[in-house]
Every structure is written in structure tokens, then in C-alpha cells.
């Protein structure tokens, strides 16, 4: 029995962490948020060069053959540095394809296939959103599809099955998070050879990765709060020596540390196909959303007025966590799904 990371996993995380620290400054993220496409594309090229997009693609299909836990560790680093990366969408697609033998997997590894994902309709259909397939034609539209711009394929949900298709129209929507793009999309055609993947399992992987992203972002916000409280002085002492401030930081850490263990456990459970894996994945995202929004708010408060400014830029993490909470399963919807999964809903 060993509940922890292997040396390779620690090294993988260290590599990605270093990349993020060196290549993705807050200034760079600001430029992307302000719509500097060239900056976004240069970063995308560097991310591709990291060679992580085929991480979940089986080795026989040209990928690294690693697991959901490894992918979560990578995504955590991207969350920490609020990195706009296609890794999440590509990984969910790779997972959906993993038993298909499709050559698209090799394309993901080589960056010839770049995925967007449109799975939000699974738990939440609003304003008529939702896609369906009839007579080999896809009708309808999906809201809040992620990473659609500059993608080559879209992973989408229709008739309770996960499919791969080509985007027809895509209209970008304005969310609070300008670093990542979300769109309303329609589909023109879909891959006939790929007969589809189970939505629950695919969705579970998306849940784990979004939870890991929030874990990283929340860890960064906690680190920033502790650093700020150790530096900022009022009443002749650093504010971190006041219990009113110190206890807020302790509460953040007390919630975050067990949540990290939960995400590791849930990711591992998917990798070994544990019976409880799905319920655990859905609850992991729901729980991480609650912990994340608590930390987003609390860290901002620890920063006082500066936390509210654009100058410090803390709001980029706040919004990242806020978006992760709402998309692909808000907490209550996920808890209901977890209850269904365990046969607790009549």
C-alpha cells in the first residue's frame, strides 16, 4: 500500500511547474486576456513542445500511456499559473478514444488533432442547448464549449453518447474569465467510425481535471495570501501575526490539504477502475469547487483592498476558480449525480 506520488510523477509535476514559472507570467496572461492572439499562439506552441497532449493516449496508439492521476498533476500546475492550455480538452478526448484504436489519438500526440470539448449539456441544458443525432445529422447547439478556437475536432455529447465531430458555427461568449475561451457551437459532421464513449466515464475525467485545475489555482491563492500577510504591516506589525488573519489562512490550508488527497484518490480510482470511481470523481469536483470558492474569497480578503484591484491581478485566479465551479457540473448537480451513481435516488 502506498498512497502518494511516484518519483516519476513528482518529476513530471516539477517539469511542468518550472515551465509555468518561467514561461507564463501574469503579464503574459493579461495580454492573452486582452485578446493578443499572437501571444496566445506563441504560448500554445511552447505548450505543444512540452509534449504532454498525448499523455492519456495509450502507448500502442502513439501516446505516453499515462493515467488520469498524471494528467491531474499536470493540470494542477496549469491551474496554479492560470495557464490557458488545451491540455484538459485534449486529455478528455484522448480518454474517450482510448479503446477505439482510432488514429486520431496519434494525431493528438503530434498536435495534428487539437480538441475542443462540448460536454456541458450533460447535466445542464439551458436556453435550448443540447445536441442530437438523427439520420446521421447533428442538430442543435451546445453552450459553453471550451477551447473551440483553433481546434480541429470537437468532443461532444449527443444521444447520451460522447462523439467526435467538426464544428459548424462557433460564437464566442463573454465570461468572467478572458484567459480561456468558451463558445456556443453547432456541429456539421461527426466521425462515423468512432461509435462513441460512455458519457459518465468521460465526464468523470473532465471533473477530475477541472478539480485539479482549481486545486492548483487555490493553492496559488493560499500561497499569495500567506506571503502577503507576512509582508504587509499595519498597527506596527505584519498582519499575518494577527490571529484574525492567521486563522483565515489556517482555514484555507485545512480545507485544501484533504481536498488534494481526495483528488489523488479519485484520479487513481479511475485509473484502476474502482467501483466507487465515478461517484468519487463527481464528488471531488463538487467538493473542490466549494473549497476553491472559499479560498478565492478568503485569499482576496486577506489581501485587503489590494486583492480587489486589477493591479495585483488576484482576480484572474478568482475567476478561474469561479468558472471551473460552474462549467461541466455545478456542485449541486454533481452531488445529485453522485447520489444517482450510488443508487440513492429513487
Amino acid at each position: 500500500m502506498e498512497f502518494g506520488l511516484l518519483e516519476d510523477q513528482v518529476m513530471l509535476q516539477e517539469t511542468v511547474r518550472r515551465f509555468v514559472a518561467e514561461e507564463v507570467s501574469l503579464d503574459l496572461v493579461r495580454q492573452i486576456a486582452e485578446g493578443e492572439i499572437q501571444v496566445a499562439e506563441t504560448l500554445a506552441e511552447k505548450l505543444t513542445a512540452l509534449g504532454l497532449d498525448g499523455l492519456l493516449v495509450p502507448e500502442k496508439d502513439g501516446g505516453s500511456g499515462l493515467g488520469v492521476l498524471d494528467a491531474a498533476l499536470v493540470q494542477e500546475c496549469f491551474g496554479y499559473g492560470i495557464v490557458p492550455a488545451r491540455f484538459l480538452s485534449n486529455s478528455v478526448a484522448a480518454y474517450a478514444l482510448r479503446d477505439s484504436g482510432s488514429s486520431i489519438m496519434n494525431d493528438i500526440t503530434n498536435n495534428d488533432a487539437r480538441f475542443g470539448i462540448a460536454l456541458n449539456d450533460f447535466l445542464s441544458r439551458r436556453d435550448g442547448s443540447g445536441l442530437s443525432i438523427r439520420d446521421e445529422a447533428v442538430s442543435g447547439a451546445s453552450l459553453m464549449a471550451m477551447d473551440v478556437a483553433r481546434s480541429t475536432h470537437l468532443l461532444f455529447l449527443a444521444n447520451d453518447t460522447v462523439r467526435i465531430g467538426q464544428v459548424g458555427s462557433a460564437e464566442q461568449v463573454k465570461t468572467i474569465d478572458r484567459t480561456r475561451e468558451f463558445s456556443e457551437v453547432t456541429i456539421t459532421s461527426f466521425e462515423q467510425q468512432f461509435t462513441g464513449a460512455e458519457i459518465e466515464k468521460t465526464f468523470a475525467v473532465a471533473c477530475i481535471l477541472l478539480a485539479a485545475d482549481t486545486l492548483g489555482a487555490a493553492q496559488c491563492m493560499l500561497d499569495k495570501a500567506v506571503a502577503y500577510a507576512g509582508d504587509r504591516q499595519q498597527f506596527g506589525r505584519v498582519i499575518g501575526s494577527f490571529q484574525a488573519v492567521k486563522h483565515l489562512c489556517a482555514e484555507m490550508a485545512a480545507k485544501l490539504e484533504p481536498a488534494r488527497a481526495l483528488i489523488w484518490h479519485a484520479a487513481h480510482a479511475l485509473d484502476v477502475q474502482d467501483d466507487e470511481a465515478l461517484a468519487m470523481a463527481f464528488l471531488a469536483k463538487a467538493h473542490m469547487a466549494e473549497v476553491g470558492t472559499f479560498i478565492a474569497k478568503t485569499s482576496t480578503e486577506v489581501h485587503g483592498g489590494m486583492g480587489f484591484t486589477d493591479l495585483v491581478g488576484l482576480h484572474y485566479w478568482y475567476k478561474r476558480i469561479g468558472v471551473n465551479r460552474q462549467i461541466m457540473g455545478a456542485p449541486m448537480a454533481l452531488r445529485e449525480l453522485a447520489a444517482q451513481q450510488q443508487g440513492l435516488v429513487a
Binding site: 490539504e257 481526495l262 489523488w264
Partner: peptide, 24 residues
């Protein structure tokens, strides 16, 4: 039921945290 599931997530988290401590 929602409150029950909220607590289940926390129970899972504390169990996983316990496994991590045992491994340490």
C-alpha cells in the same frame, strides 16, 4: 440528500488524507 453528498465528499477527503498520512 444534497447535504448528505456534501458530507460524503468530506468523508472521502479525510479518508484519503488519512491514507496519505499512513504512507508518510
Amino acid at each position: 440528500r444534497d447535504r448528505l453528498m456534501t458530507l460524503q465528499a468530506e468523508v472521502y477527503a479525510m479518508q484519503a488524507n488519512g491514507l496519505r498520512i499512513t504512507t508518510n
